[in-house]
């Protein structure tokens, strides 16, 4: 075997190094998380009735915002809110809870709110400027000696928060309303309205599936 052939064999083996990185998520629903937690000393099944507001609050930031000055926060469009609220009602009904008006002395109340965050992309690959530095491409990168610029990714993420408030312990003490069950749905707020709605429904179902203590 000639020397050049030997180098060729050597060169053919090297690309193994660059084939090392495996795949990650391919679909938006693979990035969805369903988080639930509850007060373990609370007997949910001793209660029967619940109420739920007909709107979903849109949380816009740390500062309480009231852009139109009507004393109420911003809300999700009613079509989006309906998808969420109908699915919550369906699951509550399946678990043996009865929906009543807020004036009907409900045992618990479910408050639903939503928030989205737009994350800005700061990282970009050396490849974009590799062409400007012959001999330093590919495989090089950036480094920032002794400091770090923001390193965040570019996507819009969203969460839906559900809180189950215990009304039976009124009057509440310490200016705090007791949240006995909490659920956070988190994921990409990307992929179109129908896709987000479908994922939200699936994830609300999952929240109840993983909370069997709510079932009568």
């Amino acid at each position: 075997m000639t020397t050049s052939l030997r180098y060729l064999l050597f060169a053919c083996l090297l690309p193994l190094l660059w084939g090392c990185y495996p795949k990650g998520a391919e679909y938006t629903d693979e990035l969805d998380l369903v988080y639930t937690n509850y007060a373990s000393d609370f007997n949910f099944t001793a209660l029967k009735t619940y109420s739920i507001p007909d709107s979903v609050v849109k949380i816009t930031g740390d500062v309480i915002s009231d852009p139109d000055g009507d004393g109420k926060p911003s809300f999700l469009p009613s079509s989006s809110a309906k998808v969420i609220l109908d699915q919550v009602k369906l699951n509550m009904s399946n678990y043996g809870w009865t929906l009543v008006d807020k004036r009907g002395n409900p045992d618990v109340t479910i408050l639903v709110s939503s928030m989205t965050t737009t994350n800005i992309y700061y990282y970009y690959d050396w490849w974009y400027y590799g062409w400007y530095y012959p001999g330093y491409n590919p495989g090089w990168g950036w480094y920032y000696p002794g400091y770090y610029p923001p390193y965040i990714t570019g996507y819009r993420s969203g969460s839906i928060l559900m809180q189950m408030i215990d009304n039976t312990s009124k009057p509440w003490g310490s200016d705090n309303a007791p949240v006995k069950w909490v659920c956070i749905l988190n994921g990409l707020a990307e992929g179109g309205t129908a896709n987000i709605a479908a994922r939200t429904q699936v994830n609300i179902d999952q929240a109840y599936t993983q909370s069997p203590y709510l079932k009568h």
């Binding site: 998520a25 693979e30 990035l31 969805d32 998380l33 369903v34 988080y35 639930t36 937690n37 509850y38 007060a39 373990s40 999952q206 993983q210 909370s211």
Partner: peptide
């Protein structure tokens, strides 16, 4: 504990 997280 009382926490459950579902995801891929």
């Amino acid at each position: 504990g009382t926490t459950t997280i579902t995801g891929t």
